[in-house]
């Protein structure tokens, strides 16, 4: 029986995140899922980018590739195609995953690359002082929307679904048990999976928008949470501002490598026959 501790670098603690940050809960969930699944750590690779949650690789004792801002998913794509036997994780924040790298998200989903993308959504750029991102809700105050945010925000799960992701789920840091279950299901899906993990940022987003301390923000998540089963019977008006959690899409189809491998097999056989 493995423990989440087997996948972590305890010598790197204490972590860089602020008190009350949700990212640590996601980190522990990822490590716990790897332990639960008893994956050999040599068979796991993680690509991460820049931002608070981009630092998650610092604390994990697995193969890690830390890249530039927004480019974790293309790097994960390369790893997954370079060695299709690996379990490839891609950890991003809403900056990496939805904003500067938003284009990569829709294309990785569309291609059905065998990668599990875990996006920590805290509605802002926490690491650099709380600027707004593509998931920042309209009217929010951030360090770059001091008079209220005028843009509409992405619903990442709907975006991934529309782009063709074969597994999409949402969890909040209020419910780590559900988060672990969903990350595991995402890893078990052979194809592109997105797990959106709502993670409170009490230091910036919470403070700017007067949402109270970390505990108050967690409670708020609980109040806003609507399980997907229940949401099915609710109107769009009733769901306004709510966080629908659980498995939102589970629609498997062959992943990129499986499709491409057929071409490799056909073409390499034909080539060898022609050479002989």
């Amino acid at each position: 029986m493995k423990s989440y501790k087997d996948y972590m670098l305890f010598n790197k603690l204490p972590h860089t995140w602020c008190a009350g940050c949700g990212d640590g809960i996601i980190l522990q969930s990822i490590a716990a899922v790897m332990a639960e699944m008893e994956i050999d750590k040599h068979d796991i690779a993680l690509a991460s980018g820049i931002g608070c949650f981009g630092r998650v690789d610092d604390y994990l004792d697995i193969n890690c590739m830390h890249v530039t801002h927004g480019r974790a998913l293309p790097a994960a794509t390369g790893i997954a195609l370079g060695n299709p036997n690996l379990t490839v994780l891609c950890t991003m924040g809403d900056g990496d995953g939805a904003t500067i790298g938003g284009n990569h998200l829709i294309h990785a989903a569309r291609r059905n690359i065998n990668v599990t993308a875990i996006i920590a959504n805290n509605y802002n750029y926490g690491q650099t002082g709380g600027q707004y991102s593509a998931t920042t809700p309209t009217h929010s105050i951030t360090s770059t929307s001091p008079y209220g945010h005028v843009e509409h925000n992405f619903d990442l799960c709907k975006l991934a679904e529309a782009a063709g992701a074969t597994f999409v789920a949402r969890a909040t840091t209020y419910n780590p048990v559900q988060m672990r279950k969903l990350i595991r299901q995402g890893i078990e899906n052979k194809g592109f999976s997105l797990i959106e993990c709502m993670a409170a940022c009490p230091t910036h987003y919470g403070r700017y928008n007067k949402q109270g301390d970390a505990a108050a923000m967690l409670k708020r998540y609980n109040e806003l949470t609507v399980p997907v089963e229940k949401a099915k019977n609710m109107t769009p008006e009733e769901l306004e501002g709510k966080l629908v959690t659980g498995v939102l899409v589970n629609n498997p189809r062959p992943d990129y490598y499986t499709m491409y491998k057929k071409i490799i097999d056909e073409q390499s056989a034909a080539y060898e026959a022609a050479q002989a």
Partner: peptide, 23 residues
């Protein structure tokens, strides 16, 4: 493997990822 990426930013990162995976 050939993959046509969405832009040159992602192409570069995919190259690096695949190279790190040994290709």
């Amino acid at each position: 493997i050939y993959i046509q990426m969405e832009d040159e930013l992602s192409s570069m990162n995919a190259l690096l990822g695949a190279s790190l995976a040994g290709k």
